[in-house]
Design a protein around this nucleic acid. Structure first.
Length: 442
DNA sequence: TCTGGGGTCCTAGGACCC
DNA sequence: TCTGGGGTCCTAGGACCC
């Protein structure tokens, strides 16, 4: 088939998917615990207080862009009274869990897509009631968690995302847009630029523009086959999804992850091997925690470290190596050993001008369920001892806070001058008794 | 003139997302 | 002085095999 295909077939009685997400989520979490932040510009910074990664509407209107380096906007923030926070992932993760608990009251199937976005199956809701349910959902989440949200509804995930985008930007919609409604669908698709579609990035947009595509409607009307040539099967799927034909399944269970990485920029440049080994050991420790939480193991660990591309004039060096373990593991001690071996294999003593390393990390890409993984014939690791030991460490850290118990080689031997900066972090209000907010009456 | 034809597996790199 | 971190999916191309 070619030419414009009938869009949005089988809408009535077909599937309805909602995408709900928190508005400026990290900023909104901060606002929940500090009413003085409402109505004023707020931003939250990335790790190391590097870039702005969440901005309230007030901050956006001051011209602060996603990813703006903080050092470039610091003066402006001071002058304009922007409230600036370091990331508080413990708080945001907990607030995310609370929001999802509310979503589950509204839908039999909730797929968590990211820390601030979830897909809800609303297929059982009558088409005439979907808008109303979206509004009810919004106000309930607001009342029970304090987080403002927007809701987009569509027959496919891609259309639900698009509806959410519309709900966010068109004020009279009151935060809810339902594209399962044929009139709304016809109204909006020709008014929204194709670049707003989920999965269309810069490179794809340039190709589509060359094909004469301007609006989402133009994109939906393309013949999928030539699009596949230009944008691969991903682009072809997007067209089908925009026409109401679902290609992206909705599922409650998160797929088992395929890879896991712990990477960090240093708060200051580091030049010596001992500090680098300390850092990768700390990353390996964190990697072990993440893997154990999901019962996963790995037998290849890649270690990298490099100088900064922003340090012009200084010598550049980028190093990466892979260390193979005798069998899959998530044992912190084995991972630290592998990480340090990665440094040992690649470390070069500097000449007259030392390298100034800015970042290091540890990456795995071939995770497997540890219980189902084959054992080594030679060099078997001692799982019988490692398992209980790691479980004990994890339990201590869960109770007394991360880092309460760490292997001696993972950063105890010296001051962690390289550690990531979080100089403006708020308390972990919802997960640490000692950091509960205090209310004063009278 | 034609210079086999499929397979699989792996890796690197691109693109996109939050 | 100061520029985040962590994912997914897809394709092309090489190595290797029968």
């Amino acid at each position: 088939m070619s030419g414009p295909a009938p869009r949005q077939r089988d809408r009535i009685g077909g599937r309805a998917i909602a995408l709900i997400d928190g508005n400026s989520f990290y900023c909104s979490c901060e606002r929940v615990f500090d009413p003085k932040l409402s109505g004023v510009p707020v931003i939250v910074l990335s790790n190391n207080d590097g870039c702005a990664i969440a901005r309230t509407a007030e901050a956006k209107s001051l011209g602060i862009k996603m990813g703006d380096p903080y050092f470039k906007i610091r003066d402006m923030c001071r002058v304009k009274g922007v409230r600036v926070f370091s990331s508080n992932y413990t708080l945001y993760g907990d607030m995310s869990g609370r929001a999802n608990a509310v979503y589950r009251d509204f839908s039999p199937m909730v797929e968590i897509y990211s820390i601030d976005e979830s897909f809800l199956d609303l297929s059982d809701v009558h088409p005439d009631r979907r808008l109303e349910l979206g509004r009810d959902l919004r106000s309930t989440v607001r009342a029970w968690t304090g987080i403002p949200t927007c809701v987009g509804i569509g027959p496919t995930k891609t259309l639900a995302k698009l509806a959410n985008h519309i709900a966010k930007r068109i004020a009279p919609l009151d935060g809810v847009c339902d594209l399962t409604d044929p009139a709304e669908y016809e109204h909006w698709l020709c008014r929204i630029p194709a670049g707003e579609v989920w999965g269309i990035g810069r490179a794809s947009l340039a190709k589509l523009e060359a094909m004469g595509v301007d609006s989402v409607a133009d994109l939906a009307d393309l013949d999928p086959r030539p699009v596949r040539k230009a944008l691969t099967v991903v682009g072809e799927r997007i067209i089908h999804e925009l026409r109401g034909l679902s290609c992206l399944p909705l599922g409650a269970l998160p797929a088992q992850r395929k890879g896991c990485a712990v990477t960090r920029s240093f708060s200051t440049r580091i030049e010596d091997r001992a500090t680098l080994e300390q850092a990768v050991s700390a990353h390996a420790t964190r990697l072990g925690e993440k893997l154990r939480r999901e019962g996963l193991g790995t037998n290849h660990v890649s270690v990298f470290y490099h100088t900064s591309e922003h340090d012009r004039g200084a010598p550049m060096r980028s190093v990466s190596t892979t260390v193979t373990l005798p069998e899959a593991t998530n044992d912190t001690l084995a991972l630290i050993k592998a990480a340090r071996l990665g440094v040992a294999k690649t470390w070069r003593e500097p000449g007259s001008r030392p390298w100034r390393f800015s970042k290091a990390g540890i990456v795995t890409t071939d995770l497997m369920l540890l219980d189902a993984s084959p054992r080594a014939l030679i060099g078997q690791l001692d799982r019988e001892r490692s398992g209980p030991l790691m479980a004990a460490i994890d339990a201590c850290n869960a109770r007394f806070g991360r880092g309460s118990v760490v292997p001696a080689r993972a950063g105890m031997e010296a001051k962690r001058t390289w550690s990531t900066k979080f100089e403006m972090r708020t308390p972990r209000y919802t997960t640490q008794v000692g950091e509960l907010p205090i209310a004063v009456a009278g």
